[in-house]
Each structure stands twice: as structure tokens, then as C-alpha cells.
Amino acid sequence: MIAFDLSIRKGDFALVARARALGPALAVCGPSGAGKTSLLDAIAGLDPAARGRVEVDGVVLQDDEAGVNLPAHRRRIGYVFQDARLFPHLGVAGNLRYGARFAPAGEEPTLDFVVDLLGLRPLLARRTRDLSGGERQRVAIGRALMTAPRLLLLDEALAAQDDGRRRDILAHVATLRDALRRPIVFVSHRAEDVRAVATDVATVVEGRLDGATSVQPS
């Protein structure tokens, strides 16, 4: 379960976002430039100016009124960025292993588990610059999972993919949702992606996100 009540301000841009998702997969929709990525940054603790409250599965990550504000590296949120942001000096395996040392003892998934889940075996020995866009996203998802995150954020992880690859990743996301029992927040502007995976949907309209609606994933 994820709940947030955040106020984000960057120059002229302002976003007030408040929602509590009942299911494990919250889709955040809205036109581009609406602030969807800013919202994910704030949830991840990467926007020092964001104020408010973030709670995941009963753990309060930020509550400025109570003086709680965990830094990004202590939030244990796996963030899959829109541009993947793989480390160019590490190979695929190095990227996957990067965050594993920070996973809580006993909870860290094995490399084999993540590799098989996402079909990364053929990529393991590759350099990141030789990967396609879809492959980069899958490696980024795997890299995030290796930290045993309590929440997974996916920012347009499907946008740059062709149809076959999108269905493929969607299937992976659905697997994550069911197999890992970790909540997922994902940004998307394709209705069919939302229908396929989301249990809750929230929409950003004109600087506001007001509540999430439960939906039945197809």
C-alpha cells in the first residue's frame, strides 16, 4: 500500500499530489509536462524541496510535520528512470549488482532470480552502450529489484518500446506485482498499459493529483 500527500515546487511549476492506493499497482496518468516524473522524484526522496508525507506499507518515509525525511539512499525505493540511467562504466552484470550490497541482509534476491525473471541471461556479459532501449529498461528494472526495494517506481518504462517488447515488459511488471508482493507506482500515458497492470489509477490535472480510483486489472 502506498500513500502520499506531497507539495512540490520548482520555480513556476507547482504540483499538489494526494492519493492512497489500495491495490499494489498505482498508475499515474496525465499529459506530458504535468509533473508525473517530479512526483516520482519526490516519492524517491530525490527532490529536496518536496514537502509532505510518504508512506509505503505502513513505513513512513517522509512526514515533514513529524520531522521525518529519509534521504533517498535510505528509502529503499527502486526507481526505474525513463532514461534508465545505467552506469556506463559498469557492464550489465555490474549494473545489476550495484545496489545488491545495500539490500537488507536476508532479503536480497539472488542474481539468478532477477536474471531469469526479466530474461536478462543473454545480456549479462554485454556492455550497456550496446543495449537497445528495451534492453536498457529491463536491466534498469533488474538493477532496482536487486536492492529488494519496498516500492518500485517505473517512469514511462514502456514508452520507447515497440509493441512486442511493451507486451513483454508489461507481463514482467504484472509478474512483479504478483510475485514480489511489492507495491508499484508507474507512470504511463497509454490506456492499454494502465488497463493491463494497474489496480489503482490517479490522474494529474493542472497541477493537482487528487486521489486514486480502484480499477480491475484485465
Partner: peptide, 27 residues
């Protein structure tokens, strides 16, 4: 070096100095 790579490292659990030393410095 793209500072967003360091942000990615922090989101993976790396404390800021560790992220700097293992991502930004090698790059």
C-alpha cells in the same frame, strides 16, 4: 558527468559519498 547517474546510485541505496566514489569518480 551526468549528476542524474549519482541520483540513480542513491536511489539504489548508495550513500552520497559512496555514489560519488563509485559512479562519478570512475566516469
Amino acid at each position: 558527468v551526468d549528476p542524474r547517474l549519482e541520483a540513480a546510485a542513491r536511489s539504489l541505496g548508495a550513500p552520497p559519498l559512496w555514489a560519488f566514489a563509485t559512479v562519478t569518480l570512475p566516469l
